[in-house]
Amino acid sequence: MTSQSAVTSAPDKTKPQAPRKRFTTTQIVDIGVQTSVIVVLCLAWQLGAKMGAINPFLLPALSDVLGRIWSDMMSGAVFVDLALTLYRTLSGFFIAAILGIPIGILMSRVAVFRWFFDPLISVGFPMPKIAFLPIFILWFDIYDTSKIIMVTFSCFFPIVAATYAGAVGQDKWPLWSARSFGATELQTLWEVRLPAAMPQILTGLQVALPVGMITTIVTEMLMGGRGIGGSMIMAGRFADSVGVFAGILEIVFLGFVVVRGLEAVRRRLLIWHPETRK
Rank of each mutant, 00 (worst) to 15 (best):
D144Q: 02
G100E: 01
M74D: 14
I98M: 10
F132Y: 08
D64C: 10
A96M: 04
D72T: 10
I103R: 02
F113D: 01
D64Q: 06
P158L: 00
G92P: 12
L86C: 05
S154F: 03
A83S: 12
I105Y: 08
F140V: 06
P119L: 10
L106G: 07
I149L: 13
A162K: 02
T163V: 04
V123K: 11
G92Q: 03
I149W: 03
A161N: 07
A111V: 00
I142M: 11
V65M: 11
M74I: 15
I130W: 06
F156P: 00
P119M: 05
G76D: 15
W139V: 12
P60L: 03
L59S: 08
I101W: 03
S108A: 07
P158Y: 03
F113K: 05
S71C: 09
A53L: 15
V110W: 04
Y143E: 00
G124C: 01
F93L: 13
I121D: 01
P158D: 00
D144L: 02
D118M: 09
L138A: 11
Q46C: 06
P56F: 05
S63C: 12
S122N: 10
L43M: 10
S122D: 13
L106H: 06
S146W: 02
P102H: 01
T85E: 02
I54P: 01
R88Q: 09
G67R: 14
L47P: 09
P56L: 01
L84H: 08
F79E: 13
G52V: 05
A77R: 14
Y143K: 02
Y143N: 06
S91T: 14
I137N: 01
S108M: 02
G76M: 07
I142C: 14
T145D: 00
F132R: 10
I149F: 10
V80S: 10
F113W: 03
P128Y: 04
L82M: 06
M73D: 15
F156M: 05
A44F: 13
M51G: 13
T85G: 04
I69S: 13
G48M: 06
A161H: 08
L82S: 13
A165W: 13
F94S: 09
L62P: 02
L84I: 12
P128V: 05
C155R: 14
I148H: 09
M73E: 14
D72V: 14
Y164I: 07
V110L: 01
T152R: 12
P119A: 09
A162Q: 11
A97R: 15
P134E: 06
Y87R: 11
G100F: 04
L66E: 10
